[in-house]
Amino acid sequence: MKTQLREAFEEEMARAKALYRQQNWDQAFHHLERAHILGQRFVIPHTRSHWWMLKVGWHRRDRQEVTGQVVRILASLVISRIWVPLGNTGGANVSPVKPMPVPADLQALLDA
């Protein structure tokens, strides 16, 4: 993972964790989705984003999210280097194989 991309990923994760500590689950999840888009091509960052999504799902008492994230964590460990659906936000509310539009600011980082 190139430096600029790693820094952007870590910044999104830091924002998510800060919001998580404040119990602001919705905003934390938003930043986890952004981190997921940035890190999904790399095993460890990809898996970290799903782990934190699982934690948010747990606090929301969202059974669908928790179940979906368990499956996605396992898949991220195996599939990240082979294929990922570009732009997929990683939440259980979307198909894990569906490509999605990438926000312009994140696309610039992915293109760099």
Results as ranks from 00 to 15, higher is better:
Ala28Trp: 05
Gly57Arg: 05
Gly57Ile: 05
Glu11His: 15
Trp58Tyr: 13
Met53Trp: 04
Ala28Lys: 04
Ala35Thr: 03
Arg21Asp: 15
Ile37Arg: 03
Leu32Ile: 00
Ala28Asp: 09
Leu54Glu: 02
Gln69Tyr: 02
Trp52Val: 05
Phe29Glu: 08
Ala28Phe: 09
Asp62Ala: 04
Val71Leu: 12
Arg60Asp: 00
Glu12Asp: 14
Asn24Phe: 13
Arg21Ala: 15
Arg34Trp: 03
Arg72Pro: 06
Arg63Asn: 08
Arg21Val: 12
Glu33Ser: 11
Ser49Trp: 03
Gly68Gln: 02
Ala35Ile: 04
Thr67Glu: 11
Leu19Gly: 09
Gln64Ser: 15
Glu33Leu: 06
Arg41Ala: 13
Ile37Asn: 07
Ala16Phe: 08
His59Val: 02
Gln69Asp: 04
Arg48Gln: 10
Ile44Asp: 13
Val71Cys: 07
Trp25Leu: 07
Gly39Ile: 08
Val70Arg: 09
Phe29Cys: 05
Asn24Tyr: 08
Asn24Gln: 14
Leu38Gln: 04
Leu54Trp: 11
Ala16Thr: 12
Asp62Pro: 00
Leu54Ile: 11
Ala35Asp: 01
Gln69Ser: 02
Arg21Tyr: 12
Gln23Cys: 13
Arg34Asp: 06
His46Lys: 05
Val66Ile: 11
Thr47Gly: 12
Arg72Leu: 07
Gly39His: 01
Glu12Gln: 15
Gln64Trp: 13
Arg15Leu: 15
Arg15Thr: 14
Leu38Gly: 11
Ala16Cys: 07
Ala75Ile: 09
His30Trp: 10
Arg60Lys: 11
Arg48Phe: 11
Ala16Val: 08
Arg61Gly: 06
Val66Ser: 00
Ala28Thr: 09
Gln27Tyr: 10
Gln69Ile: 01
Ala14Pro: 12
Leu54Thr: 07
Arg48Trp: 05
Gly57Asp: 01
Ser49Pro: 04
Val66Gln: 07
Gly57Trp: 06
Arg15Ser: 14
Trp25Ile: 01
Glu11Val: 13
Thr67Pro: 02
Ser76Leu: 00
Gln40Lys: 11
Trp52Leu: 03
Arg61Ala: 10
Trp58Cys: 10
Lys17Thr: 10
Lys17Met: 13
His46Cys: 00
Arg41Thr: 11
Gln69Asn: 02
Trp51Val: 15
Trp52Ile: 00
Met53Gln: 08
Val56Met: 00
Gln40Met: 14
Gly68Glu: 01
Trp25Glu: 06
Pro45Asp: 08
Leu74Glu: 05
Thr47Lys: 12
Trp25Cys: 06
Asp26Tyr: 10
Gln23Tyr: 12
His30Cys: 09
Pro45Cys: 08
His31Met: 06
His36Thr: 01
Thr67Ala: 14
Val70Pro: 02
Met53Ile: 09
Leu74Val: 08
Glu65Phe: 04
Gln40Asp: 08
Gln23Pro: 11
Gln22Tyr: 10
Tyr20Trp: 14
Glu33Met: 12
Trp51Phe: 14
Tyr20Asp: 09
Ala16Leu: 11
Ala14Leu: 14
Val71Lys: 07
Trp52Glu: 01
Gly39Leu: 04
Ile73Pro: 02
Asp26Thr: 13
Thr47Pro: 02
Asp62His: 04
Ala18Asp: 14
Phe42Thr: 11
Ala18Thr: 14
Arg72Asp: 01
Arg34Pro: 06
Glu12Leu: 07
His31Asn: 01
Arg48Ala: 05
Asn24Ala: 15
Val43Glu: 03
His31Gly: 01
Tyr20Pro: 06
Arg60Ala: 06
Lys55Asp: 08
